[in-house]
């Protein structure tokens, strides 16, 4: 430590001690605290309506093309509940990084009011970097590999794997979708109607077949920066989320 920082530290301590400390805030222990319940959003990646299996499983799409998925990571943010188009609940600091490699991360546990009544939910796909996201901690920790730079912001979704016949090294494809600046904003909202309003788990499927079907992965094996393609893919991605009725 150098002298400059030591002296700065000494000065700060002095200034702090000469100030009045604020009275500790009393926490409002209202009775409504008891009326909280846990609601789980379980997001399940699917391939042709079946649970997606990573790595070894080889899937077919577009008749005969073969694909296997190695990585699927994405952000679900700004979770909101609606009733008759009016917002009735929104989760605070709502940032969740979902990683198919980590099944626990695919279940988002929410604390909602016991009496919450809703008919639809809205989820953000990706991190809306145009808004202030607050401290870069927890799922927003930039060392988790989902952050580009100030210019690119957060990566909303990573999808990586292998495709037969693709003209890339080891038949590999890598899609890193994100971007927040003007003309490059990939943040999207998913709106889903809820039928079973009493269930303690809302099951949501992400049908990857529908997404992959639209891609020309053989021609374009990599998307790894913000731009028009990433924006187009994001708008297609949100359509692949659906409520699974169990």
């Amino acid at each position: 430590m150098n002298f400059k920082s030591i002296s700065f530290f000494a000065l700060s301590i002095l200034l702090l001690t000469s100030m009045e400390l604020p009275v500790a805030l009393t926490i409002n222990q209202s009775s409504s605290q008891k009326k909280i319940k846990t609601l789980t959003l379980s997001i399940q990646p699917l391939f042709l309506n079946k649970k997606l299996i990573l790595n070894d499983k080889i899937y077919s799409y577009s008749n005969s093309k073969k694909i296997s998925i190695e990585t699927l990571k994405f952000y679900i943010t700004n979770i909101r509940f609606f009733e008759k188009n009016k917002m009735v609940f929104s989760e605070q600091s709502s940032f969740h990084l979902l990683d198919s490699d980590n099944p626990k991360s695919m279940n988002i546990k929410l604390s909602v009011p016991q009496a919450l009544s809703y008919d639809s939910i809205q989820l953000g796909l990706g991190v809306d970097s145009t808004a202030h996201v607050g401290p870069m901690t927890g799922d927003l920790d930039p060392t988790k590999g989902m952050y580009w730079t100030w210019k690119g912001g957060y990566i909303n979704l990573k999808l990586e794997g292998y495709i037969d016949g693709i003209r890339s090294r080891k038949n590999e494809f890598q899609y890193h979708i994100g971007g927040y600046q003007f003309g490059e904003n990939c943040y999207q909202e998913i709106n889903l109607s809820i039928y079973n309003k009493k269930a303690s788990t809302i099951n949501i499927g992400l049908e990857l077949h529908d997404f992959i079907q639209n891609l020309d992965l053989v021609k374009q094996s990599h998307i790894m920066s913000p731009g028009a393609e990433a924006v187009l893919l994001s708008s297609q991605l949100v359509k692949c989320f659906k409520i699974i009725k169990k």
């Binding site: 060392t143 590999g145 952050y147 090294r169 890193h176 998307i223 790894m224 920066s225």
Partner: peptide, 26 residues
């Protein structure tokens, strides 16, 4: 330089097996 050397990845390029440069070249 920072596109491939991110401070949050100790200036490496996280999740990229090979360097990823201009025009998305690998």
């Amino acid at each position: 330089c920072a596109s491939c050397h991110s401070s949050f990845g100790a200036f490496a390029h996280v999740d990229h097996a090979l360097s990823h440069g201009i025009y998305d070249s690998i």
